[in-house]
Design a protein around this nucleic acid. Structure first.
Lengths: 131, 131
DNA sequence: CTCCTATATCGATGTGTGTCGATATTGATT
DNA sequence: AATCAATATCGACACACATCGATATAGGAG
């Protein structure tokens, strides 16, 4: 069966005029990330050697209560940024790299290639001094 | 007089555990972007051939009132995403590509996620949404 | 100076959201 | 069955925020 890779694959962004619908969709995704607790959750999960973490591993290090952790994980999950898997009593969360990459690319100005071009020099400095 | 917004060059993100301070700083930046109207403003400004736009060019196409436009532009400006310059009665806004790039890089996973490909992500049923 | 235009600020209002205690649900174990 | 542990949901609170009308500020023209 074809796997249902969610990832609505972010709408175009700075490369053309966003319509209201695309803007709302993108804003919702960024809104899921735009929270200190959720950013820390993401970074903590990403920092795990196994690439995954269960709730019980996250509440204490972050200094927030378990319901709050569950709430944030749910927000991130519904935003497609996290994937989850139940194993016995525990639920393990892991990143969805494709989704993060699509959000990442959403911030690209015109001539930027996606993927692994860590040496991307194509970012021209166009907006400098012109008075 | 267009002062140069500091642009602290985003803290590390998914590559190490975020501290509370870094997380708050990053979250504030993403929060500035996580709004439909502001995303549209960014895309509209980016779409200008000159790379800049004044308030009077943005209110009508976006269908929002002038005070609201000014408010959003201020938020983006204070987030370091927009730069502004006064010319006569008009104020022109333009993107700050370096700032956008740093936000973009903040979403990069560390070890180029290809390594995780072997363990196929078990895409289980997503939100069942039961109430 | 006065008038006009463009932009910013103020005030109010309705909506959204982060947090957490209490409680429910799920799974494992006995 | 009962009981415990891990997680999710519920309810409530306080706070933040997006929107816009009214008003203030700044600059240009006459």
């Amino acid at each position: 069966m074809t796997n249902c890779v969610v990832v609505p694959c972010c709408p175009p962004v700075l490369q053309k005029r966003l319509g209201q619908g695309d803007a709302e969709e993108l804003a919702a995704a960024f809104k899921a990330i735009a929270d200190p607790a959720r950013l820390r959750l993401l970074s903590f999960i990403a920092a795990q050697p196994s690439g995954e973490a269960c709730v019980c591993h996250l509440a204490k290090p972050l200094g927030i209560q378990q319901p709050t952790v569950s709430h944030h994980l749910k927000v991130l999950f519904e935003a497609g940024v996290l994937d989850r898997e139940r194993r016995g009593t525990w639920v393990y969360y892991r990143l969805v790299p494709e989704r993060l990459a699509s959000l990442r690319d959403a911030l690209s100005i015109a001539p930027v290639q996606a993927a692994k071009a860590d040496k991307t020099v194509s970012l021209r400095r166009a907006a400098k001094g012109k008075r």
